[in-house]
Design a protein around this nucleic acid. Structure first.
Lengths: 337, 337
DNA sequence: TTGAAAGCGATACCAT
DNA sequence: ATGGTATCGCTTTCAA
């Protein structure tokens, strides 16, 4: 059976208050008593109940993490970074894969609330912004990672998606491409929108156009849809010589399509991904991609939501934007003339 | 502010007992009262506290999942399967990446206990078996997934690792290989041991030997170590023509080593992985590997630990062994003569 | 220093 | 049918 604070108190011949004190290292107790109580606790293998403590107003030491899909390597890596930092502060992490479905988001948000988590980190799109307001009204800390909310007021850690889009475009322009296409996630994903906007702006400044039929939007299964959409693009009479994919997963789909249609990468088609997940380094050819500093991002949101910033980011900072980086591998090259 | 059962009772002009009844759909209340109470609950945006309910003996509706690393695609996919089924039953999942470190395992196990989770699913090696006994003594349900414990008595869902090893060996033997090597995870990982044993037995039966210097053991960073160890093997005067890797991650490292040393795969070196993660399908060449039915495994452990088996697996079943499957891709072929 | 007692939010038994 | 109340395990005044 599980032993309670009462068991310990009884066995040590003291009051539960005394035991509570040594658990929390507060108050004043003589060294002897404390030692004896500690001894008894160990002997009984006593572990204070977080549940009971939480009920008295203390924290649950649990954070929730909402992401589209934990089996997506990008989010798995984000989750790992978050978990490490969360653990560092003595908290646990509840994982919630939403598949970007509003219904799931809603259910999870409600669930986490009922479980009185000490904060919710969101890395998935939120349509129904009301829900967040409800949370905030109940003073549940909320922070966004890798995704933004229209308004603000919510702690946010993102990479500069717009700059990332520009980086990708710049790279392709430098290589001499002029006919480019884009594979996007569902447009309700804020980061994708920004990436495309950046990509587009860079092209425009270079005097290039990005016609609408060169931009394809995917559904939930990134790899499969990426493959399907890329084949469509590759069937155009005037097919693109370069493809910017809003995530590595989409790029992998594109890679598969190219292979299947016997279109050489990068000779006949250059492909740029986004995220720099482990996948980018193992594909063939390996993937040129825009890297996000996932580890740093994870660490940052946690410190932010827990209000434990070590550094001196101007206190009260609500929004941190990190720099993306171009990682050139083998999937991009000069277009054939 | 958060509203409590008292707020609802007051606003509805009833007792908290009545409110409790409608929450749990138990007891007897007139339809009018129930309707009124429901109305008030919604109006106040009231969500019953799982914490408080748990304290009165109800469940926390939370399960823990211990795995080596959530950013490892294999475990990420397992986690997703587990999460889906857990969610299906109305539970949440706490993720714990242990890096296979005893110290972390211990901490997490203790933490989950304090949080009164309703069960712990373990997919990581457990050295200190005492700890599990302690858990079981406190009647915390425990189940193993993709990993085994020496004794038994613990619910377990695994793939037949031994058969998987044999499958790999059979495939390579059929192709005509005679000089083979193995890349293993740390030997304290039970599944790796079994895979090697199966591989070895199949070779032995074919009259082949697997000398000790042909078996290399990796540390924590599977990809990097896989690469390093594979290079070592490839530097042998009589280097192996085929390599069996206990996980896809190791195989990827091997692939990288081969590429770097300009050893052609599969012409000069055949590589077989294990797990059939998404990675196996995107490498170049794509990876021949032994597939584990991850989704099914995840679903099974959850139903087992929650005691909600739909099917009729002879009640009281403690150990379920699923069949691995050989997936042939491009990383294996006949050896050069 | 130490302990008694009042909550925290919900459940469940027992009267009414 | 409905409500009063003890109880869960722990924290936190407040007296002693």
């Amino acid at each position: 059976m599980k032993s309670t604070i009462y068991d310990v108190a009884r066995a040590a011949g003291v009051s539960i208050a005394a035991v509570s004190q040594v658990i929390n290292g507060k108050g004043k107790i003589s060294e002897e008593r404390r030692a004896e109580i500690v001894r008894v606790m160990e002997q009984l293998n006593y572990k204070p109940s977080v549940i009971a403590a939480a009920l008295t107003g203390k924290k649950t030491y649990t954070l929730g993490l909402l992401i589209p899909d934990i089996s997506n390597p990008f989010f798995a890596e984000i989750a790992r970074a978050v978990e490490d930092q969360v653990d560092f502060h003595g908290y646990s992490l509840v994982i919630c894969s939403t598949d970007n479905k509003d219904e799931r988001v809603e259910r999870y948000l409600s669930l986490l609330q009922q479980k009185s988590v000490d904060g919710i980190i969101i890395g998935t799109g939120i349509d129904n912004k009301e829900m967040l307001d409800t949370l905030i009204a109940k003073s549940v800390p909320v922070a966004m990672i890798a995704r933004e909310l229209p308004g603000d007021a919510v702690l946010t850690v993102v990479v500069d998606d717009y700059a990332g889009g520009r980086l990708a475009a710049r790279h392709l322009l430098d290589l001499g491409h002029t006919r480019m296409a884009v594979l996007s996630e569902h447009t309700k994903v804020s980061s994708s929108r920004e990436r495309i906007r950046g990509f587009q702006d860079e092209l425009t400044e270079a005097g290039l156009d990005l016609p609408e039929y060169m931009v394809k939007t995917s559904g939930r299964d990134l790899v499969k849809d990426g493959k399907r959409l890329a084949s469509e693009l590759l069937r155009y009479a005037e097919r693109p010589t370069a493809l910017f994919c809003c995530t590595d997963l989409l790029a992998i789909g594109a890679l598969q399509a190219a292979k299947e249609m016997e279109v050489q990468v990068p000779t006949e088609l250059s492909i740029v991904g986004f995220d720099n997940t482990i996948l980018a380094s193992v594909t063939d050819p390996s993937l040129t991609t825009i890297a996000q500093p996932m580890e740093q991002m994870g660490k940052l949101v946690v410190d932010l939501i827990l209000d434990k910033q070590q550094e001196s980011p101007p206190n009260g900072t609500k929004r941190m934007v990190l720099k993306p980086e171009l990682v050139v591998r083998q999937s991009t090259g000069r277009p054939l003339l």
